[in-house]
Design a protein around this nucleic acid. Structure first.
Lengths: 210, 210
DNA sequence: ATAATTACAGAATAATCGTTCTGTATATTG
DNA sequence: CAATATACAGAACGATTATTCTGTAATTAT
């Protein structure tokens, strides 16, 4: 009948009472809260209030605080780290792409004064000390960034004098994280840009001699 | 009288019941606990048990958890960061001293498997998000390291081609912190040494061209 | 209509948090 | 000895924690 036609291209409405807040919407607010305050300081009560998500639904969707945190980190990596990694290109020269990458890092760390630094480097790193699940998550996220940088370096490989790309990627990732940390203490975007610029110059210098 | 003579060179024994544990002894255990678990996860109850310090004395000496944490950080900087900064010398060439510095960083971050990373970079950085006292403390500690590195660079200044020492010091400090963070995820000392070596090579390369 | 199903608001729970308080133990002073 | 002073063990406190449970609201299916 007619009902079939209008439902053709839409997901069929689910059975029971419709949700007030979709998990995806709540995730961004939860992410910002963990980011600003840390894992322990962000209580379930306030997370529910801030996200507009009822406690029951939160436990239904994320199984608890730990699950919500991990989901918030995944959301953070997708929406915030993704663009930073994307800046690596390859689009322009290696120098240009690295400059764009570090600009994105500085911007992410200082854009919003309520969320200085990086959710992974400043918050996940803390709880990774006591919780092995979190430690493994931290390791995976760190490795992923290093892989992306190493891949970009490989793409610009110079057959004559190639510094160890793996180690160089590790160093550049370390600088990015150091910048995130420094922002947590309230450093200005300007001072961080100077560090970023020096990092790019380092790569150029390393590659120009061997 | 006779009592005067025997008390001449000793601190006169204080009036009441003598202490079981000196604050200084407790501090090292408290530091390790914060370092391993983070600020919130280390509860007063367990801090008392682990340090052997009674709750009353802890509040007498440190005024509460926040005071104990700040004291633990000061103790950490003195006993753990101090030697790392001392490795900067100047003792040998800049290259040698920087290599020694980064070796000390890697060693500190990986020496004890129970306390990976850095108390300042991994723990203080987290709580700095929600607490302004902690944020200022983080900023001060970060600045202090940058000052020390900048001073060492200044000492090796080359009049012909000197890269901006302030920015270079910021970059080297960022690498050191990035190494600490990476250790928190469980990275091996070996992989961190490769990053450290690349950092030293960067400085050499930067200075050899301008 | 009724049944079935999902979401929600909020109470209930049990544990733990940081902090303060109470009484007792251990010391010096007179 | 008694008086005084400090440290300590542990109870007490109120607040907050993460999680579970209970009853009700809102929707689709029949």
């Amino acid at each position: 009948m007619g009902e079939n036609m209008e439902a053709r291209n839409q997901a069929p409405r689910p059975r029971g009472r419709p949700r007030g807040v979709l998990p995806q919407q709540a995730l961004d607010a939860a992410m910002r809260m963990f980011w600003a305050e840390g894992y322990d300081a962000a209580s379930i009560d306030r997370l529910c209030r801030e996200t507009g998500m009822p406690r029951a639904s939160l436990y239904q969707d994320f199984r608890g605080k730990q699950g919500l945190f991990l989901a918030a980190i995944a959301h953070y990596v997708e929406t915030r780290i993704g663009p930073v990694v994307a800046a690596l290109g390859p689009r322009g020269t290696l120098e240009e792409d690295l400059a764009a990458f570090f600009d994105a890092v500085v911007d992410l760390a200082t854009r919003d004064r309520r969320t200085p630094g990086c959710l992974v480097s400043c918050v996940l790193a803390d709880v990774a000390g006591a919780n092995d699940t979190f430690r493994q998550e931290l390791d995976r996220r760190f490795s992923a960034l290093e892989d992306a940088i190493a891949q970009r370096l490989e793409h610009a490989a110079r057959p004559d004098c190639a510094p160890d790309n793996r180690a160089l990627a590790g160093m550049l990732a370390a600088i990015a994280r150091g910048i995130m940390l420094r922002a947590r203490g309230g450093a200005s975007a300007q001072s961080l840009h100077m560090i970023a610029e020096m990092a790019v110059r380092s790569v150029v210098a390393l590659r120009s001699q061997g």
